[in-house]
Design a protein around this nucleic acid. Sequence first.
DNA 1: AAAATAAGGTAAATATATTGACATAAAAGT
DNA 2: ACTTTTATGTCAATATATTTACCTTATTTT
Lengths: 172, 172
Amino acid sequence: MTKDVDAFGGLSVGLSNRLFFRLYQCANMLHKTGTRALDEHGITTQQWAVLGALTRPAFENGVAVGDLAAFLLVSRQNLAGVLSRLEVLDYVERAVDANDNRSRLVRLTAKGRSLWDKDMRSVIADYYDEALTGFSTEDKIHMIHYLDKMLHNFKALDPEAQPVSGTAAAAE
Amino acid sequence: MTKDVDAFGGLSVGLSNRLFFRLYQCANMLHKTGTRALDEHGITTQQWAVLGALTRPAFENGVAVGDLAAFLLVSRQNLAGVLSRLEVLDYVERAVDANDNRSRLVRLTAKGRSLWDKDMRSVIADYYDEALTGFSTEDKIHMIHYLDKMLHNFKALDPEAQPVSGTAAAAE
DNA sequence: AAAATAAGGTAAATATATTGACATAAAAGT
DNA sequence: ACTTTTATGTCAATATATTTACCTTATTTT
């Protein structure tokens, strides 16, 4: 009775496998529990991520679709679908960029801002408290550090995500 | 007592928000880069997770669909779709449980085992090496610990995943 | 034996998520 | 002016992923 170590032939691979499987499970649960937490408002985790990004000071005055996709690390076509649904619900709007008529700047509507501030923020704060039960501030910082490190490696693995030059979107 | 008076300006909520956004980004990149790494074999990260689970010693002789869904933390209906595609490709098969004719035991076929051993394992090992560049053994252990902790909280949040009693599937 | 329970299959609706491909329009370079 | 690049939109195909719901079958309980 071997442990999973044997199935992979080495301790190192076994550890990595365990880590990635946990990440996979956490990703599944993030979407499952996150969407359920915001179920009363009909918001999914992806919509949550979009709305949350749009509340960032850097995106306060609108962000280009491509930049937002790069920031969220999703494809442009996928983001377009999410944005369309949020637009129908009048939570976000697209305005033509005065500086570049090709570009449409996505931003929160008043209704979207209200949804975030009045309805979502407290729910999200409670969700964070529950999902991070037992995490000290140091734990969180360490976890963020590891996720950052992994993210950096992922980006190196991704041919699309290469231009990490100083654009506001790629910065963080 | 931390000061989360101003919701997202607060240090505590800000940290949690940052952590979850990183997790969200990592989840996106895991599926994007993972599927791309196995692209030559036409395997997605979900199929990877299923095949990987079936190579576990505990599942060597087959596992019930419901148990596998609980193990992977996905819905039964979702898993059914993934299994159907893998079945068409002759990587997995379903056999009636001798002990319970209702239950079908999912297991790897010889072709599936060969795919895993001859084609996928080395690719996955390389992928792990790249995605975990700069991670020491201690780093991995710490990361796993944090993911485990978060997973535990997620399960507490999930009404379906409550029966954490001694079933083999829920055990790990 | 009849009823309740459990496992699985299946269907449907919705929302992600990817890639590739094509169209449009505007900006930039030659 | 012409060409190329850029930004977006859109369509299509495929694969996840969720929930609700119903059906079948088999086991278990009454």
